[in-house]
Design a protein around this nucleic acid. Structure first.
Lengths: 136, 136
DNA sequence: TTGGTATTGATAATCATTGTCAATAAGCGG
DNA sequence: CCGCTTATTGACAATGATTATCAATACCAA
């Protein structure tokens, strides 16, 4: 295996993890950086990007890419179990959802097409109750 | 309805549509622009971006956003029926697939969470036969 | 404590995409 | 067929998110 060494435990990483733990919604790296700054942290923007990126790789946080290409991060609630999201495209609220049998189905389907090493993305977006009203 | 006026029929749009019709795989706006240039077309890059964007909005072409935030376009094979893709993350090959009952399921699930105006993204990626070998 | 090495952070660099705006061309009315 | 109004075009600047640079700094194993 070519697993990465091991991240060092630094003040900034701790602060970032802490911020992630406090708010449970999806936010961009820049937004998390703002949050930290408001909490009088001095973490650099680049560091936030790097930390979120590495946390996402190791599966410690969820990452989704919006239609406009922005990457949003949020703490991962379900242990290390794979899951998906139902997200409000207006306010950003998100709920983790369960997609029964999707994994198995996807793997099998892919196999019939000769594909392997399957990965997938299932994102469901809509308007939450609040925003549906506001949009009227 | 606030439907857009109606796109004018221009030489550049025709050329772009033509290129789309020739190759059936997913390519970025820049790549399509290159294709056109090689065919001695003089279309501008911005024009390609605009055309693909508008075609995607009207559902005449498929658009997917990669993990790195790039938007890829390709001609839409299935009439105006909604569909999904199985894509090779290495060579970009893609096949349209069918996700039985997913639509209905998604809509219902969303409703139970108070969400409306549901939209969704289902992308399955893997390694196609060719690339699986090459990666060994 | 100390040295080797990750990590940090300010800033410059990338890169896809969008905005600008004068020049051009669709397509309608006559 | 002929203007005319207005969408479209294209060269280029501008944006905005993300990544690279690189010297200074902080982990942490010995």
């Amino acid at each position: 295996m070519t697993s990465k060494p091991k991240p060092r435990q630094t003040r900034q990483r701790a602060e970032i993890l802490s911020a992630l733990a406090t708010a449970g919604d999806f936010r961009s790296a820049q937004q998390w950086h703002d949050v930290l700054r408001h909490e009088s942290s001095t973490v650099g923007l680049a560091t936030v990007y790097r930390a979120l990126q590495s946390l996402a790789e190791s599966g410690e946080v969820d990452a989704v890419v919006t239609d406009s290409g922005e990457t949003l991060y949020r703490r991962c609630e379900a242990g290390d179990e794979h899951h998906h999201h139902l997200r409000c495209r207006r306010c950003g609220a998100a709920e983790e959802i369960d997609v029964p049998d999707f994994e198995a189905w996807a793997t099998q389907l892919a196999a019939t097409h000769g594909y392997s090493s399957i990965d997938h993305t299932v994102e469901i977006t809509g308007l939450c109750g609040e925003c549906a009203k506001a949009t009227n």
